Amino acid sequence: NNDALSPAIRRLLAEHNLDASAIKGTGVGGRLTREDVEKWLAKA
């Protein structure tokens, strides 16, 4: 759900042209964290 994304995470996803639904969030309530996105980028 994009409503649950912080502005910083939205920007990070946009910079790398990523789809938030492709990344499993580990934050509160399954929210994406910066670490989630960075780990996903490291694997890609």
Rank of each mutant, 00 (worst) to 15 (best):
E35W: 08
E38T: 06
H16G: 02
G25A: 07
E38D: 11
K24M: 11
D19F: 04
A8R: 10
A8Q: 11
E35D: 10
T26Q: 04
G29D: 13
S21T: 11
T33G: 01
E15R: 06
L13P: 00
P7H: 11
R34I: 15
T33R: 05
K24G: 06
L18G: 05
L13G: 01
P7W: 01
R10Q: 10
W40N: 10
N1R: 11
K43A: 15
A8F: 05
V28G: 06
G27T: 03
R31K: 14
L41V: 07
P7L: 07
L5T: 06
E15H: 08
R31F: 07
R34A: 12
T33A: 01
E15D: 12
A22N: 12
S21N: 12
L32K: 01
E38W: 13
H16C: 07
D19A: 06
A8H: 11
K39L: 10
S6D: 15
L12S: 04
E35Q: 11
S21L: 08
L12Q: 05
A44F: 15
L12A: 06
A14W: 11
G27I: 03
T26S: 11
H16P: 00
E35F: 07
A4W: 15
A14M: 09
H16A: 04
H16V: 02
L5G: 04
S21I: 07
A4Q: 14
D19S: 09
G30S: 04
K39P: 03
D19V: 09
E38H: 06
A20Q: 07
R31W: 05
L32H: 02
A42G: 11
N2F: 06
N17A: 08
L5A: 05
S21Y: 05
A8T: 11
E15T: 07
L18T: 07
G27L: 03
V37K: 00
S21G: 10
K24N: 10
R31E: 10
R11K: 13
R10A: 12
A8E: 15
A42L: 08
N1I: 13
A22L: 15
L13K: 00
N17M: 08
V28P: 15
L41I: 12
E35T: 08
N17K: 08
A22F: 12
E15F: 08
K24Q: 13
T26M: 05
R10F: 02
L12D: 03
P7Q: 12
A42F: 06
V37S: 00
G29P: 02
T26H: 04
G25H: 04
D3K: 10
P7N: 11
I9P: 00
I23K: 01
I9G: 01
N2P: 12
R31L: 11
W40V: 15
D19K: 08
A22E: 14
L5P: 05
R11M: 10
G25M: 03
A20W: 09
L41E: 03
L5V: 10
I9R: 01
L13E: 00
L18M: 10
A14R: 09
L13S: 01
G25V: 03
A42W: 06
A22Q: 15
I23L: 10
N2T: 13
V28Y: 05
G30F: 00
L13D: 00
L18F: 10
A4H: 15
A42M: 09
L13H: 00
E15M: 11
A42D: 15
K43P: 05
N17E: 08
V37E: 01
I9T: 06
N2C: 06
A42T: 13
G29K: 06
L5E: 06
A4P: 14
S6E: 12
I23N: 01
G27V: 02
L32T: 04
V28K: 11
T26W: 02
G29Q: 07
T26D: 03
W40F: 15
L5K: 03
K43G: 13
A42K: 14
N2A: 12
P7D: 14
A22H: 12
A22T: 12
A14L: 09
E35L: 09
K43I: 14
R31D: 05
L12M: 10
D36G: 00
E15G: 06
V28R: 10
T26V: 03
G27A: 04
N1L: 11
E15W: 07
D3T: 09
L32M: 07
A44L: 15
R31Y: 06
W40D: 07
I23S: 01
A20H: 08
L5M: 10
A20K: 06
G30R: 03
A14H: 09
L41Y: 07
L12F: 06
K39W: 12
A8Y: 07
K39V: 07
T26N: 05
